[in-house]
Amino acid sequence: MPTESRTLTNEWQAFWLAVGFLTRIPMPVRINYSQQLMNQCSLYFPMVGLLLGMLYAGLFTLLSLAWSPLICVLLVLCFHLLITGAFHEDGLADSVDALGGGYTVEKRLEIMKDSRIGTYGTVALVMALALKAALLLDTSNIWLALLVVPCISRITPLLLMAFMPYVTDPEKSKSKPVAESFSRKRLLASCLFTALVALVFSLWLPGLWLAALTAIITIALLWGWYLQRQLGGYTGDTLGASVVFCELVLLLGI
């Protein structure tokens, strides 16, 4: 196979691998799984976020023909949890449980691996979902917020992976293959794509680009600093939490 054709095939597979990694959407193509392909797929996290945003915005528009905005937003959030398997929300709950209940790095990592949810995680999860629904209802254009927020927020974990060490057991983690040998060039491409999305949709949602920049930098710096102090780096769960935090800060800005 020619080099150019092979490269396009690898990128196509990397995109669908990213879809399969972040969602429960069935992959329509056969994936020739490899460590390198798993590393490459992280480039497409914001693009997968935009795909999810299109589904959320379309579903909200359809539901709004029959129900009030509150009911529509709650139904879209239910759909989000279903189609993503509550992937990032699970990371939020585990992270808060671990960071709130552990007094050493070892204990925090041990709690984070526990599949059971504790008081801290439950409270964080309920408040995050409630705040997300309230902020969406308070925006001037709900469907547009549903469209762009999932895309922009998924650049934050890439920044954490690029500039922080990985600190959990590589044999028991789903995110380790994505984080290993992270390409800064691919990070730049993801950032440019996210910036383009923010700039284009700022035409309909004034100030979006500034809210996006503020949310990404704020969460990357503050959450990254806190993780460095508490864990010495990041874990897969803390990456998921960063997405939820970035979504909330971005919605606050919008």
Results as ranks from 00 to 15, higher is better:
59 L>H: 00
132 K>T: 03
236 G>P: 06
33 Y>G: 11
174 K>F: 08
227 L>R: 07
200 V>N: 02
9 T>R: 15
172 K>W: 01
197 V>N: 01
245 F>I: 01
153 S>A: 15
38 M>Q: 14
12 W>K: 14
19 V>F: 08
50 L>I: 07
29 V>Q: 05
122 T>Y: 09
225 W>M: 11
200 V>D: 02
46 P>A: 03
115 S>H: 11
182 F>T: 06
129 L>I: 12
243 V>D: 09
15 F>I: 08
14 A>S: 14
127 M>V: 15
212 A>Y: 00
45 F>Y: 13
30 R>L: 09
12 W>Y: 13
73 V>D: 04
250 L>G: 01
142 I>E: 05
1 M>Q: 10
52 L>T: 01
190 S>T: 09
148 V>H: 07
30 R>V: 13
252 L>P: 00
124 A>W: 08
130 A>H: 06
141 N>E: 13
55 L>C: 13
239 L>R: 10
71 I>G: 02
24 R>S: 03
71 I>C: 02
7 T>M: 13
156 T>G: 05
184 R>H: 13
173 S>A: 14
143 W>K: 05
74 L>R: 07
162 A>V: 07
112 M>N: 09
222 L>P: 01
115 S>Y: 07
18 A>M: 06
250 L>H: 05
67 W>S: 10
193 F>E: 00
84 T>F: 07
218 T>S: 14
236 G>I: 07
132 K>A: 04
183 S>V: 09
2 P>T: 11
243 V>Y: 08
102 G>M: 09
77 L>T: 14
149 V>C: 12
243 V>I: 15
45 F>H: 07
50 L>Q: 08
36 Q>F: 00
